[in-house]
Design a protein around this nucleic acid. Sequence first.
DNA 1: ACCTGAACACCGTTCAAGT
DNA 2: ACCTGAACACCGTTCAAGT
Lengths: 221, 221
Amino acid sequence: MAAPMAGKRRSRTGPPLTRERIARTALAIADREGLDALSMRRLAAELDAGTMSLYRHVAGKDELYDAMVEAAMEERDLELPDGDWRQRLHALMDALRRILVEHPVGVQIRLRRPIISPGALRLTDAGMGVLRQAGFAPAEAARVFRTLFLYTFAFCAFSSPADAEETRRQGQAALLRLDPEAYPEVTAVGEHLVESMYREDQFGFGIDLVLDGAEPLRASP
Amino acid sequence: MAAPMAGKRRSRTGPPLTRERIARTALAIADREGLDALSMRRLAAELDAGTMSLYRHVAGKDELYDAMVEAAMEERDLELPDGDWRQRLHALMDALRRILVEHPVGVQIRLRRPIISPGALRLTDAGMGVLRQAGFAPAEAARVFRTLFLYTFAFCAFSSPADAEETRRQGQAALLRLDPEAYPEVTAVGEHLVESMYREDQFGFGIDLVLDGAEPLRASP
DNA sequence: ACCTGAACACCGTTCAAGT
DNA sequence: ACCTGAACACCGTTCAAGT
């Protein structure tokens, strides 16, 4: 299907406007230049269409945001590896992290409007399956997953690997400006604090803290 | 000091413009109507000043954001209660949560530009003091604190108590629309998932998971 | 019926003109 | 020297005019 119709005079170049093509192009702009750079006018220009033509497919900017999150969540498979429940949850959270690293704009958008779209729930479904199979009761499974999700989300929000070096430099500069009298503890352990903000293995460390804490809640399977 | 000069003809009403007064007014607008509603023009109008007069005190909008976060972090005392290290960390994270609940706009701003300002570091200093006194080595203390901070931040980002009821309703509506075949796990435990998003005690639950996980890393004091 | 340009009511910031 | 209005180059969205 999707047979290319012949020489129909279409508005301009390229494939026709669809909600999905609009969403993907919007994602690309926002990921490349930040959410502030994404305007309806700019997006329309990129798509070689009139600004108002977009409104045929998305009701307005908010609905555009929804479509962008769905597009981001759906493009990656969530395949669970073999292994115990801990390894499987690590893998799921790594997948979420990769999605948010690839589409950093997803963080900002999801904060603007908490979205419980089908696409976003695939991850939740997989996570709940792992936790329940591991012997967690439904209520505890939900709450442990929520904790993992929130941690992962914030981790991505605050540390895109792209600017790890920049983070390190800014952190160290801030430390040097600090008054040791007023901030004795931060001054004493400053180096470790800075490291905790950009170290690659900090992500897994936090996940493990939560999983270690959750372990006792698990009924033996 | 700060003697009020007598009948000097000042631009309009009220006290003179200062960086702090600008920041507080900006916070009030953004907390009340959202970050999108905060514009330089609107802010100037609220302060009964010309738009360009603001630029005398803040270099631009980004620096305005910085000033807002500082103002928000500095207005609340961080007094540590008596108790063991766990109770004290609970109290600190509760304090952070209250700040972010009071100034929900802080979440969005801090995501736009990670700020390591002195005001924001008071909390870190207190937290590191508690953890080190409890017997954590500097590196572990830093990483445990980072985990707690990230969890707390995301928790506030996703669940302002103000719209807990709205969250619940939207969550339940989303569940009903869901295809049970495609999302078996979410369908099976849906109620618990929705609850984990708005239950008041979910916050403490997550903190406890992290603290339980951290406990074994602690050297006996 | 479908599509979309002009127009409206906004932005942040530069810059030159006011005092 | 200090302050700030007009102007510039943008926004999202309404609405009526085009095909």
